[in-house]
């Protein structure tokens, strides 16, 4: 479903070209639970940005669900992000002035779903992450773990092709982290494809497949038969 072919990415710092990714080839199929691991500076954020259609590679090909997503216009990329990808960020990235319900609804607003349906779907999604009784809370009234679960509900709402989680437990305590990771495992069992970006070995253990990056190249790609827990 996700195919990265010969992806290269470099940034320009002044007149000097700084290569970040070298010849990345990666395929992720539907229903997989993949972690992308690596120390900081290994290029995992860049891969995440490319996978999330937030950034474009210098060269290479990205085929998502049979369609090439490179050389698309910005508005088309917005549409792809909206329909295909559910984002979960390290720092939650909820809009502070909106309630949990409104935050979760946001992708549906951009997909032009009508108000009534939007609300029903959002309540369903919040119920699924165990926050049915927090729908009208604002982010400031929620704990870190609850915020991240709202963000997961938001990522799920458009029934995306995959969820892209960037250090989802980076700002959480151990108990909340566990809760969030169990939720991902739960969702994967239901068939949701998950791509997890992390630098923590322990977190990566939840995934069925781990990809290791170093200095912008894949150095290891291993599959586990069983879940860690």
């Amino acid at each position: 479903m996700i195919h990265l072919k010969n992806i290269n990415k470099s940034y320009w710092i002044g007149k000097e070209e700084v290569p970040i990714l070298h010849n990345i080839n990666l395929s992720i199929e539907e229903g997989e639970y993949v972690s992308i691991m690596g120390p900081s500076g290994s290029g995992k954020s860049t891969i995440m940005n490319i996978l999330g259609c937030l950034d474009t590679p210098t060269s290479g090909e990205y085929i998502l669900d049979g369609n090439s997503v490179l050389s698309r216009k910005e508005n088309e990329l917005s549409k792809i992000r909206n329909e295909y990808i559910g984002f979960v960020f390290q720092n939650f990235n909820l809009l502070p002035r909106l309630t949990a319900l409104d935050n979760v609804q946001l992708p549906l607003v951009y997909a032009k779903v009508n108000k009534k349906e939007r609300k029903e779907l959002a309540i369903d999604a919040l119920t699924k992450v165990g926050l049915k009784d927090r729908v009208n809370f604002k982010p400031t009234q929620l704990s870190g773990g609850q915020k991240q679960r709202v963000a997961i509900a938001r990522a799920l709402i458009n029934k995306p092709k995959f969820i892209l989680a960037d250090e989802p437990t980076g700002a959480l305590d151990t108990a909340s982290s566990e809760q969030v990771m169990n939720l991902f495992t739960e969702l994967n069992k239901e068939g949701v494809t998950i791509v997890l970006i992390t630098h923590e070995e322990e977190i990566a253990q939840y995934a069925k497949r781990s990809i290791f990056l170093r200095d912008g190249a894949i150095i290891k790609d291993e599959r586990r038969e069983l879940h860690a827990r």
Binding site: N75, S78, K79, R81, N82, F87, N93, L95, L106, Y110
Partner: peptide, 16 residues
């Protein structure tokens, strides 16, 4: 800026 980034990541088009 951040709010704009979040909205765009979630699929908001320029016009929105």
């Amino acid at each position: 800026t951040r709010e704009i980034g979040i909205k765009k990541a979630l699929g908001a088009k320029r016009s929105v």
